[in-house]
């Protein structure tokens, strides 16, 4: 933007200088506003994933809070009640097992998902009540190599 200030000499240079200055100030304010909104919103929407062990360790503080967990999926544990739209499955990580309940349509890729990102709350019984789930497949756009 500094280049705006370098006008060739002509009549009413001072006026054009003040125009550039006005514009510079306006631009700064605009960028400031965008930056402010961005930073604010960024903090509100950036969510760290908890691993299962972190979740169980901090269970007391986290109950009732919306958190995200990311862990490998135990495919054998998937139970999909299509009639009532209840999806249940277990996330497994080492010796930690987290049962998850999700009310809604199961994603198409559930059956060959490798890991799941679930957002929701841990209830009193230690069951994760998910508001949304995201299935991570080996690849969305690439297939794994032929063995």
């Amino acid at each position: 933007m500094a280049s705006l200030l370098q006008n060739s000499p002509a009549q009413s240079v001072s006026r054009s200088k003040s125009n550039s200055l006005k514009f510079l100030i306006g631009g700064m304010i605009l960028l400031g506003v965008i930056g402010f909104v961005a930073v604010n919103s960024f903090q509100a929407n950036t969510v760290y994933y908890y691993t299962l062990s972190e979740l169980s360790a901090q269970r007391a503080q986290l109950s009732g809070q919306t958190v995200r967990v990311s862990a490998p999926l135990d495919k054998a544990s998937i139970q999909n009640d299509q009639k009532n739209l209840v999806l249940q499955f277990n996330l497994v990580e080492g010796d930690q097992v987290l049962p998850v309940v999700y009310r809604g349509v199961a994603p198409d890729t559930m059956s060959n998902g490798e890991s799941v990102v679930a957002e929701g709350k841990l209830d009193a019984n230690g069951v994760f009540q998910a508001d949304s789930i995201l299935v991570k497949c080996p690849s969305k756009y690439e297939k794994s190599a032929v063995q």
Partner: peptide, 18 residues
């Protein structure tokens, strides 16, 4: 080494007014 996501509302809240 921290897994993190930036959720869709971030993009909507910033880009909506813009």
């Amino acid at each position: 080494g921290k897994q993190i996501t930036v959720a869709a509302p971030f993009f909507n809240q910033v880009n909506g007014p813009i």
